[in-house]
Computed example of a mutant assay.
Amino acid sequence: MLAQRTSRLFVFTDLDDSLFKNLKNTKRDLSFVATTNNQGEAQGYSSLQQQKLLGVFEAAGGVFIPVTGRRTDSFLNCSLPVIKNTPYAVVSHGAVILDKYHRLLDGWHTFINAEFNLAFWESELVKTFNHLHNHFTAIGNTVKVRLITDQGITAYICVKVSRNDYSENKAKDVDSYLKSILEDDMLLHSNSRNFAILPPYARKDVAVRYIKNKLKIGEHDTVFSIGDSNSDLPFMKESDFLIVPNGSQILDRELNQ
């Protein structure tokens, strides 16, 4: 068939809660370790169903391209072969693209600098970080703020409510405050007790479009996407088919509308 001879298959995929999840949400006897923490301890497990999904695309010759909020060092803790051995990887919420050697992709820094005035936004991130650090330090130690730099790029601000102090009301208060000080063109990604303030160059969909152009993905190719959170939707819409796990944030949003 013509499609079999000419069409390539690509899978742009989120990682956490899409291809693996923590142990409490998996059946131990049917899962295996898919990622570890920096100490080498098991952190995420691939379920039988997630393994089957990967197997389907592997058998079809699919090219996997990870798209994750994880920064480079955290991404490299993933042990799934189809994820580690990929031509490209989008990390740090889209602020960074890695090549097959897990180094910053040639041309990416030049592109985002030209498109978004990188120096200006990196400066704005530093100012916002200093403000948030001072604010949350003054009211206690229940919220930690970090400025994340990845592959030499100031990528985003990580804000996390401590596990012992987490509650839905606490998270809502933090979410409201972060939105109140957010600058135009910055985005806030919220997920339980974790928050990320993203500059305009930290966009998963921008990075995916860049890779699609580099690979010359066209109308004769087929593109799937896999994701679970609302922040994944923009890059997922760059595909022909969207795959969403049951119980995901995306599904909850759609069901509650």
Score class of each variant (00 low, 15 high):
L98D: 10
I226C: 03
T72P: 03
Y156V: 01
V208G: 12
Q151S: 08
N85E: 10
S162K: 15
T154D: 01
P66D: 01
N117L: 11
N113Y: 04
R203P: 03
D29E: 15
D150A: 02
N77I: 00
K216N: 12
T13E: 03
R209Q: 10
A34F: 03
C158Y: 11
K179C: 08
D221E: 13
D16C: 01
Q51V: 02
L125W: 12
F10I: 02
I65D: 04
I217T: 13
T6S: 07
I197S: 13
L233G: 02
L15S: 00
L9F: 00
N213T: 12
A42R: 13
L30G: 07
I226T: 00
D106Q: 14
L147I: 06
N22D: 15
V174L: 00
K100W: 03
E41I: 04
S225D: 03
K214I: 13
S31M: 07
K21T: 15
L178A: 09
V206A: 03
R70F: 03
H93E: 11
Q4D: 05
S229W: 00
N213I: 00
T72L: 05
Q249T: 11
A138W: 01
Y101A: 10
I226A: 01
E219T: 14
T6E: 06
G40L: 05
V145N: 10
L251N: 13
Y101V: 00
N194V: 09
T142M: 04
A196D: 13
K216A: 15
T13K: 06
R203I: 00
K24S: 14
Q49T: 09
T26H: 08
F10Y: 15
Q151T: 02
N117A: 06
I217W: 09
V143P: 07
K144D: 06
L23E: 12
S239C: 11
G62A: 14
C158A: 14
K237C: 12
R28M: 10
R193P: 08
L251W: 10
F75S: 09
K170R: 15
T36Y: 08
S74M: 04
N164P: 00
E122I: 04
N117K: 10
N25T: 14
S167H: 07
V174W: 01
F241D: 14
Q49N: 12
F64D: 05
S176R: 13
K52Y: 10
D99M: 07
H102G: 01
